[in-house]
């Protein structure tokens, strides 16, 4: 019973991070109808930047969010302005391949700069834990989970209450109608790609607290992100949160009761099953 409870608790904590990590992918898809295969690159980049700031300047990973958010925004908006923008009227699969090219280049750059070795960082609270009744909860996971939830609230408020949020939602619903109503669609696209990438990079900052990183880091989490957004309904904030937590729990249950090695198989199978059941028609 205690086993099951602690598996559930850890699943929920990691699930909130999954949701936060995936949200950028959903946002970009919602506004641009583009599947951002470079999402994994931004995640990985976020972890490395955080690691570098920590090991070089001793900066706390949570503080480094102040850097990864604007940096992610700038990089994302640049990728949109220089590359994605050119393919706005092409079939979605071509953009997917283009962004895969971006991912390869980033991966290679990371190998050149940081090498292929596992990098991980340690903070004063990395190994702390908190006893809640019979459960022991890891402090960094609690913090990261809280930050993810906070990020979600900020984002939800932004989309609901601000002009840019309104513009984003307008373009997501109907690009042509939005353009006719005077929404600067080009700028909205760049902004959406920027926000999506900022979310991914800051998710990297959070994840650096309990994952080590290699340049291959992004692949695994890109697929988990797909899984979450497809399950949760692409742009639906609440759905994505629930899906993230659901995936977290399913993975931890598999790892605990079946085999640790099959943890990732769950997300792939859930991903495929979810896609097929939705029968989402794209074109």
């Amino acid at each position: 019973m205690v086993d099951l409870l602690s598996v559930l608790a850890s699943g929920i904590l990691v699930g909130t991070v999954y949701a936060y990590m995936a949200y950028g992918l959903g946002l970009i898809y919602g506004v641009l109808r583009v599947v951002n295969l470079a999402h994994g690159a931004f995640l990985t980049l976020g972890v490395y930047v955080t690691w570098w700031l920590n090991t070089t300047f001793g900066m706390d990973p949570l503080v480094s969010i102040l850097i990864t958010v604007p940096l992610g925004f700038a990089l994302g908006a640049t990728v949109e302005r220089t590359l994605v923008f050119r393919l706005r009227d092409s079939p979605p699969v071509t953009t997917l391949l283009l962004l895969f090219g971006v991912w390869l280049i980033v991966r290679n750059a990371l190998y050149l700069i940081f090498g292929g070795a596992d990098r991980s960082l340690l903070t004063s609270y990395s190994l702390e834990s908190l006893a809640v009744g019979p459960l022991t909860l890891s402090i960094p996971r609690l913090i990261v989970s809280a930050f993810s939830l906070l990020g979600f609230v900020v984002l939800a408020l932004m989309l609901k209450r601000t002009w840019s949020g309104l513009a984003l939602r307008a373009v997501a619903q109907d690009r042509e109608a939005a353009a006719l109503s005077g929404v600067p669609v080009n700028r909205v696209w760049a902004v959406a790609f920027g926000i999506g990438s900022a979310l991914a990079m800051s998710a990297g900052s959070l994840m650096s607290l309990f994952y080590s990183v290699t340049p291959e880091f992004g692949a695994r989490f890109l697929l988990k992100s797909f899984c979450v957004v497809v399950l949760g309904g692409l742009t639906n904030i609440g759905g994505i949160l629930v899906a993230g937590i659901g995936l977290g729990i399913a993975e931890d249950l598999t790892a605990f009761y079946i085999h640790t090695g099959y943890r990732d198989v769950v997300s792939f199978l859930v991903l495929t099953a979810a896609l097929v059941m939705r029968r989402a028609d794209s074109d």
Binding site: L223, F226, H259, G261, Y262
Partner: peptide, 27 residues
């Protein structure tokens, strides 16, 4: 089942299947 999906959805589903296959093969 997967070919009922089209475009990017099919592409993503194939990644999922292939990666799951790879992990299982390793075991």
């Amino acid at each position: 089942p997967c070919l009922r999906l089209r475009g990017p959805y099919f592409a993503i589903a194939t990644i999922g299947v292939a990666e799951a296959t790879r992990i299982v093969a390793n075991h």
